[in-house]
Write a protein that binds this DNA or RNA. Structure first.
Length: 314
RNA sequence: CGCGGGGUAGAGCAGUUGGCAGCUCGGCAGGCCCAUAACCUGCAGGUCGCGGGUUCGAGUCCCGCCCCCGCAA
């Protein structure tokens, strides 16, 4: 492997997704002179001030960590590597890097520019997604593509597993792409802007299930929005309304196998209500129905549907 | 001190004004049946989160602690 240890790299990243890339860079012997990450934030129920995963990793690797972008001036860096940093980096900062900045984006750009590409790919039922490495330019997720790799999306893929996969693949792809790029031999393929699509920041309300949608669509939503914001709905249980998060479900379609093949999917049950059929928990949707596997009532831990039936619906 | 719900059998829940700790499912044994995830009979399984206190008596009331979860990113 051709490495140029004289290239000084500044790494920008914040969440867990960025960690494998930082690790790989250091392990492969690249000279990471500085890590820029977001400030510690209060986290969790107890609002404990917590450093970002990247900060924790950087300290472990003995790389200096700063939150102030202007610190970069003191490091004479050549190249920037940006992985889920979480903020727009101002042009004046970009100009400090002679070799520019590379960015890992977890989609097949120009598809799914924006902040939620992984969730969007699952939500839309895509067969595949991927990871792209681009050179940052002045527009969001717009720069020329240096490298790209496809990844199939299985029928039961959920956001957490896909995050993990793409996180690791992104790191590998970066390590493969860097030598040529640093040597000035990389091909820069401009994106076809006419094919660009965009995804939005996800909000809590996006997790609210609209049971008039098709079972198909709701099932994809459940996988896409795990673990946050989750997919939830209000149900009538023993004359009380409780908010319940659906953790996983199977589409009740006679074509599908599994044990729901014999279930009556009569399209007559009330939409969005629990129905017990053959001792299984089913919710009728606008089209088709969902067999609930795991769920979580508010204030409770997640539990199998069977346990929910035994404890709540008897 | 951000707001709130909770910890009772392997799982999920009940437990009234303090008075023999219960229900559904699961497990085990037996029965019925062509057969079964159905049905019948029986059995096992509990330091009621931890530590104090009040009381003749605490799952239940009081104080302290630990843990889990929903909202709040």
């Amino acid at each position: 492997m051709t490495k140029d240890n004289s290239t000084k790299i500044v790494f920008f990243g914040t969440p867990k997704f960025a960690v494998p890339t930082l690790q790989a860079l250091v392990t492969e012997g690249y000279h990471v002179v500085l890590v820029i990450t977001q400030p510690d934030e209060p986290v969790g129920r107890k609002q404990v001030l917590t450093p970002t995963p990247i900060k924790v990793e950087a300290l472990k690797l003995n790389v200096p960590v700063k939150e102030n972008l202007w610190e970069i001036k003191n490091y004479n860096a050549d190249l920037g590597v940006v992985v889920a940093y979480g903020k727009i980096i101002p042009q004046a900062i970009l100009d400090l890097f002679p070799l520019g900045l590379l960015n890992i984006h977890p989609s097949l750009l120009p598809k799914y520019r924006g902040p939620s590409p992984i969730q969007s790919a699952i939500l839309n039922g895509d067969d595949e997604t991927g990871v792209s490495i681009i050179k940052l330019d002045e527009q969001m997720d717009h720069g020329p593509i240096i490298s790209q790799i496809q990844v199939p999306i299985s029928k039961d893929e959920s956001s957490p597993t896909l995050f993990d996969k793409l996180s690791v693949l992104g790191a590998e792809l970066m390590i493969k792409a860097l030598p040529d790029y640093v040597a000035g031999k990389a091909k820069l393929e401009p994106q076809d802007d006419s094919k660009a699509t965009y995804c939005e920041m996800i909000n809590k309300e996006d997790g609210l299930i609209d049971w008039t949608n098709s079972a198909d669509q709701i099932e994809r939503q459940i996988r896409a929005y795990a673990p946050w914001p989750g997919s939830f709905s209000e149900f009538d249980v023993n004359h009380k309304k409780i908010n319940i998060k659906i953790i996983s479900a199977i589409i009740c379609d006679p074509v599908e196998t599994r044990n729901c093949a014999s279930l009556p999917h009569d399209n007559q049950s009330p939409v969005g209500k629990f129905v017990i059929k053959n001792n299984q928990l089913v919710v009728q949707c606008g089209h088709g129905a969902l067999l609930i596997e795991k769920l979580q009532p508010e204030g409770k831990k997640e539990m199998p549907a069977q346990a929910f039936i035994n404890g709540y619906l008897k």
